[in-house]
Design a protein around this nucleic acid. Structure first.
Length: 378
RNA sequence: GCGUCGGUGGCAGAGUGGUCAAAUGCACGUGGCUGUAAACCACGCGACUUCGGUCUCCGCAGGUUCGAAUCCUGCCCGACGCA
C-alpha cells in the first residue's frame, strides 16, 4: 500500500501540498526527512525523533549492510522494529557512497560546491578506492578494507530485507567535478541500473527511480524523461544542481516539469534551511539532509535568525535559549550557556540537545512551507 | 641535614652543544562541512614585520664556548630515599 495524494497545487509556483500514504502512516508534504544512516538519528532515541516532529527517516543500504547486515535486521523484525521507529522509513540505495567513498574522498569535496567547479574528471576514470563497472560497484571499506560489491540487484535485495516503506534505485551519484563526457556515461549506466532495479524488485515497498545529470540541463531533462517513463512509484533527484541556490531551483523545476506530476519526488541530500523554499517551489515533495544533526554535533545551531556556533566563548555567559522564537523542549528548558559548556566539555548531552533543537527547527521550517502553500504564499 | 632525580611555551611531554621560536598530544582560536568513513577535517597558536626578516624565550644568577634549552658553578623550587 503506497499512495500519493496532491491536496493543493500552488498557483505561484510548482509547489504542491500533499500526503504520502505508507504502511507505517502518512507523510504530509513537503516534508523534511532526517537522516538515520545506521538506523539511528545520531544521539537521539527514536521516540525523541518523533517528538521533534519527524514524519519519516532515511536509512542507508551500504552502511546497514556493513553493520549489522540486512540478515540480522530482517531477523530482528525489519528496520522499523529493530530501531523502534513506528512511522515511515526510506532507505537510500548506496548510490551516494559511490561518490562519497569514491571521487568525493579522492578530491576531498562534497557533492555541492561553493563556486563554479573546474570540471576535470574525464570519462573512463576510476576513483582510487572503488571500482565502478557496468554491473555495479566494488567498494573497499575505508575502515577495514573489506571488499563489498553493490549493484542494482544487490541493493534492491538488501533494501527488501531491511524493509523500509520507500526504497531507492541504485545509482551513481556523480561528482560535481565530473566532466560532461563522464556524466553522460555515468548517466546511461544509472539509467540501465534503474531498469535492473525494477526487474529485481519483488516486494510491495515503493521503489523510487533516481534522476541524475549533474548541473547539465540537457542531461537532467533527458534523465527525467527516461526515469520518469519507467514504472517507479516516485522519484529521487540526486547529485548536484550547480553552485548557487538559483540554479538549484531552476534545475529542479526543469526536472519536475518533465516527471509525472501525480508521483512524489524526493530531492536527495539537499536541505539547508535557506534551500527549503527553493525545493518546495520547484516541486519537491520530500528532501533529506544531514545538516541538522551533523552540524549540531559540531556546535552549529540553526535558528530563525540564521546559524551560529554555540561553542563560541561568548555563549558561556548567555542565559538565553538557543532560539528565543523556538518552541522546542530544549529551548524551553536549557540556556545557551549550558549547551555551550557541554559542547566545550565534549559531553554527549550537548550534542544531543543541539541535535534535538536543530531537528525541531528543520521540521518546523517544513511545516511553515506547508502553511505557506496552504495560504497561497508560495 | 645528606643523597638521588628533576624544573621546557596555558597544560602534559620530547629535545640534552649549532639544523630550536623549540617535536607530539591536549587546550584555545578561525574556517569548512547539504542522499553521514564525520563527537570530524584544515589552518593558526611568543612579539613585531615593508613577509625578507628582526627581537625576546627553556626555574633564577653567573660562567665556559665562535655558538647553550642542552656543559660548569651557585641559588631557589619539587619528588623520592636515608637520617
Amino acid at each position: 500500500m503506497f499512495e500519493f495524494k496532491i491536496l493543493k497545487k500552488s498557483k505561484k509556483s510548482r509547489a504542491r501540498l500533499g500526503v504520502i500514504k505508507t504502511p507505517h502512516g502518512e507523510i504530509e508534504t513537503p516534508a523534511f526527512v532526517p537522516v538515520a544512516t545506521r538506523a539511528t538519528v545520531r544521539t537521539l532515541e527514536s521516540d525523541e525523533v518523533a517528538e521533534v516532529g519527524a514524519q519519516v527517516l532515511i536509512c542507508n543500504t551500504y552502511h546497514l549492510h556493513t553493520a549489522p547486515g540486512e540478515k540480522l535486521v530482517k531477523k530482528a523484525g525489519g528496520l522499523h522494529r529493530f530501531m523502534q521507529w513506528k512511522r515511515p522509513l526510506m532507505t537510500d540505495s548506496g548510490g551516494f557512497q559511490v561518490f562519497s567513498l569514491g571521487f568525493g574522498t579522492d578530491h576531498g569535496v562534497g557533492k555541492i560546491l561553493k563556486e563554479e567547479p573546474e570540471r576535470k574528471i574525464p570519462e573512463g576514470t576510476q576513483p582510487t578506492n572503488i571500482k565502478i563497472t557496468d554491473d555495479g560497484v566494488h567498494f573497499r571499506s575505508p575502515i577495514d578494507g573489506e571488499a563489498l560489491f553493490l549493484g542494482p540487484r544487490e541493493s534492491i535485495r538488501i533494501q527488501e530485507a531491511l524493509g523500509a516503506d520507500i526504497i531507492f534505485a541504485f545509482d551513481e551519484c556523480p561528482s560535481p567535478l565530473a566532466g560532461k563526457e563522464y556524466m553522460r556515461t555515468s548517466l546511461e549506466r544509472t539509467h540501465r541500473w534503474a531498469g535492473m532495479c525494477i526487474k529485481a524488485h519483488k516486494t510491495k515497498q515503493a521503489l523510487y527511480g533516481i534522476v541524475q545529470g549533474g548541473n547539465f540541463a540537457p542531461l537532467r531533462i533527458e534523465s527525467a524523461k527516461i526515469i520518469g517513463a519507467m514504472p517507479f512509484q516516485g522519484f529521487g533527484i540526486g547529485g548536484e544542481f550547480g553552485y548557487d541556490k538559483r540554479s538549484l531551483k531552476k534545475m529542479l523545476s526543469a526536472v519536475h516539469a518533465v516527471l509525472p506530476q501525480e508521483k512524489p519526488r524526493h530531492v536527495l541530500g539537499v536541505g539547508h534551511p535557506e534551500d527549503f523554499p527553493y525545493i518546495a517551489s520547484a516541486g519537491g515533495d520530500t528532501f533529506d539532509c544531514i545538516a541538522p544533526t551533523h552540524y549540531a554535533r559540531r556546535g552549529v545551531i540553526f535558528t530563525s535568525l540564521g546559524r551560529f556556533d554555540i561553542r563560541n566563548r561568548r555563549y558561556l555567559t548567555d542565559q538565553k535559549p538557543l532560539d528565543p522564537k523556538c518552541k522546542c523542549d530544549i529551548c524551553a528548558t536549557y540556556s545557551r550557556a549550558y549547551i555551550c559548556h557541554l559542547l566545550r566539555a565534549h559531553e554527549m548531552t550537548g550534542m544531543k540537545l543541539a541535535s534535538y533543537h536543530n531537528l525541531h527547527f528543520f521540521n518546523a521550517q517544513a511545516e511553515k512551507l506547508r502553511t505557506r502553500i496552504k495560504n497561497d504564499e508560495l
